[in-house]
C-alpha cells in the first residue's frame, strides 16, 4: 500500500465544486448522459403493497410477530405493569438495572421513578446513567420505544438527549415498555411517518434478540446485543 501523504478527499473541503468528488460527479454525468434512461421512478406510495390490513388488530399482530422473532411479550395494564417488570427483573436475578426514561416514549420520568422505587424495595439497584461501567456491568436495561411495527414485531428505539444507544444494545437483557397506541401496522406506515418528521441521529429497528447462524446455520441468540428482549405491552 502506498503511503503517499495525500489529504483526505472531503466534499466539505471543496467548496465551489472543484474537489475530486465534484470532478467525479461531473465526469459521471457526462459519461452517462448519452446512455438511455428508460426507467421511471415508481410512485412514492406503497399503499398497494401493504402486508398489514388497516383493520387488523395491531396489538395482537405485534405480539404474535414479536414472539415469533424471539421476544417475550407481556400484555400488561397501567395497574400491573410495575409488578410485571419487577417479576422479570426478579426472574433474572439481576442486581444492577439501567432505567432510561425518554420523552416521547411510554417510559416517562414518573414511571421510571416508580420503577426505580419498586426495584429498590426488592433489593435491586436501579441507575439512570450512561457511563461505560454501567452499560457493560448492568444486568438489564429498561427503556421506552418511540414506535413499534405490528407487521414484523419490531421495536423502534432512537437516540436523543436522554437516550443512550448502548442501553438497548450492551446489557444482556433489554426490557422495553410499549404503549399499544404506539403500534403502527405496516413497515410502510412507520417510514411514511418518519419521512414527515425530523430524524434523530440514530434510529434502531429492533426485531427480536441479537442472533447469529454463522456456525453450521444453527441459530444462537445473544451474540453482542441482548440475548433476551422482554416487551411490556401496555393496554
Amino acid at each position: 500500500m502506498s503511503t503517499d501523504p495525500q489529504p483526505p478527499l472531503t466534499a466539505a473541503e471543496t467548496p465551489g465544486g472543484t474537489g475530486p468528488l465534484d470532478a467525479f460527479l461531473h465526469a459521471l454525468r457526462r459519461r452517462t448522459e448519452a446512455a438511455p434512461h428508460p426507467t421511471p421512478l415508481p410512485d412514492r406510495s406503497n399503499a398497494a403493497l401493504r402486508a398489514v390490513r388497516p383493520a387488523e388488530e395491531l396489538a395482537a399482530r405485534f405480539a404474535a410477530e414479536a414472539t415469533a422473532a424471539g421476544c417475550v411479550v407481556h400484555r400488561v395494564t397501567e395497574a400491573n405493569w410495575l409488578a410485571a417488570a419487577k417479576d422479570i427483573v426478579g426472574s433474572l436475578s439481576a442486581r444492577l438495572v439501567l432505567v432510561q426514561p425518554q420523552p416521547g416514549t411510554a417510559l416517562t420520568a414518573e414511571r421510571a421513578a416508580a420503577l426505580a422505587d419498586a426495584l429498590a424495595t426488592a433489593g435491586r439497584s436501579a441507575v439512570s446513567k450512561w457511563d461505560d461501567d454501567t452499560l457493560f456491568n448492568c444486568d438489564a436495561a429498561v427503556t421506552g420505544v418511540v414506535a413499534a411495527i405490528a407487521e414484523t414485531g419490531t421495536l423502534v428505539c432512537v437516540s436523543g438527549p436522554a437516550a443512550a444507544r448502548g442501553a438497548s444494545l450492551i446489557p444482556p437483557v433489554h426490557i422495553a415498555l410499549l404503549d399499544r397506541t404506539q403500534i403502527v401496522g405496516d413497515l410502510f406506515d412507520y417510514f411514511d411517518r418518519l419521512a414527515n418528521t425530523g430524524s434523530p441521529a440514530n434510529i434502531n429497528l429492533i426485531t427480536g434478540p441479537s442472533k447469529t447462524a454463522d456456525i453450521e446455520g444453527i441459530l444462537i441468540t445473544g451474540v453482542h446485543g441482548p440475548g433476551v428482549v422482554h416487551v411490556l405491552l401496555l393496554e
Binding site: T152, I203, N204, T207, K211, G225
Partner: peptide, 12 residues
C-alpha cells in the same frame, strides 16, 4: 427472517 434483528438508520 422477516427483518434482520437490527436495522439501523444513521443520520449524521
Amino acid at each position: 427472517q422477516p427483518m434482520g434483528a437490527y436495522t439501523t438508520l444513521i443520520n449524521g
